[in-house]
Nucleic acid binder design. Sequence first.
DNA 1: AAGCTAGACAACCGCAATAGA
DNA 2: CTCTATTGCGGTTGTCTAGCT
Length: 304
Amino acid sequence: MGRSPCCAKEGLNRGAWTAQEDNTLREYIRIHGEGKWRNLPKKAGLKRCGKSCRLRWLNYLRPDIKRGNISQDEEELIIRLHKLLGNRWSLIAGRLPGRTDNEIKNYWNTNLGKKHQTQQTRTDPDPNLCSTSKPVPNNIKVSSNTGACSSPSPLKIMNSHDHDVIRTKAFRCSKVPLTPVVLQAQPNKHQHSINNKPAESGALMDEFFPFSCQEEDHQDHNHSSIFGDICLSDLLNWDFSDVSDFIFSDNNSNDLSPSSDQQPLCVSEEMLQDWTASNCVQTNVVAPNIQGVSSLLNSGGELL
DNA sequence: AAGCTAGACAACCGCAATAGA
DNA sequence: CTCTATTGCGGTTGTCTAGCT
């Protein structure tokens, strides 16, 4: 479909944002709200592409942003979700309130991907189990700040030429719920079990879903149904490698194909998209193919 | 101290999906 | 139904920083 370029590139600022630009954008959005990104720069007096403004806002300027200090729990969840979902960073980010897909993507590419790759090569000879955006060298030097962002403070100010360039990070919630495989796997969970978090995972849930027991986050009610019936502690305890074996059985999937000696569980990529595209989880779609999940869960499968 | 290199991450690019006229 | 604008997403690039030589 034909599209005009999002903006003329002539005369526009590029590169790092200055504090002044950030303030301008923040103030404009405070007054006028989000949206209409194409016209925003002109109206706000910014020499930026609308797309750039949107990205800056979503990734950095939004108020409910959690920057850096990715906890061990979050890291573990990222790894598992990546195993389940692949490079669907927005989906993964949607499971981690306060985190943006960009941050998670970067974190994966710089830390987890390498670490995970190392583990894979050590424990799993199948290189297709997990795909990363780019090949990772084997001489991994695991970052010393693994589990904690390199940024020592939430707001890192750097000098770039004569501008005060602000490096911040923003939050975007994905609207897409997690795959109902999970829901089916936990059929007895209370509908709002995410709010009725078990005691042993309380801190974790508070960390991941601060809105779940507080005032509902206005911007994404789907969060309350993101996990639907599942409990995050269960999520963290699942062996997604097994789950993903049947979730991504689509023939063109670049990873995660079921082993040949298994009964193939035909949950296709299309189905997954159906699930993730709808707010209502179509558990009935999965039900016939989900038989292995409960046994998987009951088996107390090994953690990654 | 200077230069080099790799890591970290912010920002950009291009495409696809979606909305709405 | 078609077309265009808008938004969202993942991959990639660019730049800064820290560590090493």
